[in-house]
Design a protein around this nucleic acid. Structure first.
Lengths: 220, 220
DNA sequence: TTATTGAATATTGGATCCAATATGGAATAT
DNA sequence: ATATTCCATATTGGATCCAATATTCAATAA
């Protein structure tokens, strides 16, 4: 017999499929802050019933990506300047620590994979691709630390601000500066300089924070 | 007309009530790692249907407190030594930073409230009360920093390890040492010494981590 | 003209039911 | 004795339906 087995207990439920799709739409800005999530509409879009949609929305709320009011429905979360500041503060504390721990254990494969992200980033002109590669680049390096809990927390924090950062890249023509900073981080990693990689990561994050806060303060 | 109004959109749904109760049971060790969460049974306990129970379990999974396998059900998450190490590492990075930021803004009210936690802690002999007061004490001080996102992350991290810490307090007769360390932290806050409060907080967390890892390694 | 009320519709939360899958044990085959 | 099959039951995921609440707009009152 020649077939590929599948562990059914690991297959994605309808709620998981809807959750992933909604999260991606929020992160990529296709669902904007304040936009209502109507259960019926989403159920029809995914050819499913409202029950898995409600579960998906409930999970998104747990991640802070939507806000729900009983009987009124859910809307995509916004991001105040204060919240943005806090999230970047947390990232500025955590991410340098993670990369500091990653550098001593950085494999050639991880460096090569991160380099590919840099190359793809400079060759692309699609803001969504920049956003994806930005996250891939950092995640590839951080993963070497083997700190899954930290990475989960960083991922959640990134989810909260990603749509704004992606918009920011476009508004500020910041992709070149971002990639320059990525290259510097990569070089510090390749050189095995954990302290430098940490310092550059912190500067990268606080720089992105300052740029984003300027934009948020202009708009709000 | 003399009556008290209530914002119905802010009332707790059945799912929220079940979520809070299950989370509390997990944290307090009444639901132990590996124990299955049967939807029907929980629905009967709370005199509700399976739909809000499923939402509650889904949210608990998002918080890492349970693990679900499709069609097989949910169980309370365990905690490996590695996960414990990571969670404490994250706390050891974040919490000193938060208290460092809290000390310059510490109000007399917060200090008084934290002091009450210390007094209640030393007067109690109930391990669950110790656990609650431990969290209250730290949260009262951290709150002064005004970093809600950080506090949410710390709360989630604490949720993951709380049942083990509470068990640890009992096994190791550690409540006296814990309160001594709390008193030292409180005094550093009262003296306005942010760096000392941060250092003591870090030591407090790494000490608790070492003690817990010793216990986990004995068991596993 | 403005405020209030009523009604229709939209939307949500939860109850109930059905289909799919997992589990466990008895019956059967080897 | 062990492996396999079958079947009944338990449990879960999702569909459908009902009750409760929110929203919007027309009708009415002031």
């Amino acid at each position: 017999m020649k077939l590929k087995s599948v562990d059914i207990s690991k297959t994605a439920s309808a709620a998981t499929i809807v959750f992933d799709a909604l999260r991606k739409a929020i992160i990529e800005g296709d669902l904007k802050e304040g936009e209502p999530l109507r259960q019926d509409e989403i159920a029809r879009m995914f050819n499913t019933s409202r029950i898995p949609v409600r579960e998906a929305i409930s999970r998104l709320e747990e991640q802070g990506l939507v806000k729900t009011q009983r009987y009124k429905g859910a809307v995509v979360s916004g991001l105040s300047a204060q919240e943005a500041q806090e999230i970047f503060d947390l990232r500025a504390v955590l991410e340098p620590e993670v990369i500091r721990r990653a550098v001593p254990r950085m494999s050639k494969e991880a460096l090569a994979q991160a380099k590919e992200c840099l190359v793809a980033f400079s060759q692309s002109s699609d803001p969504m691709t920049w956003g994806d590669l930005n996250r891939d680049f950092h995640a590839t390096l951080y993963r070497e630390a083997g700190l899954q809990y930290h990475m989960d927390v960083i991922d959640n924090a990134m989810d909260r601000v990603d749509s704004y950062l992606r918009a920011q890249l476009v508004l500020s023509n910041g992709s070149e500066r971002a990639n320059d900073e990525h290259i510097a981080i990569w070089e510090a990693c390749a050189a095995g300089d954990a302290d430098l990689a940490a310092a550059l990561t912190r500067e990268h994050i606080t720089g992105a924070c300052d740029a984003l806060l300027q934009t948020l303060n202009k708009l709000g």
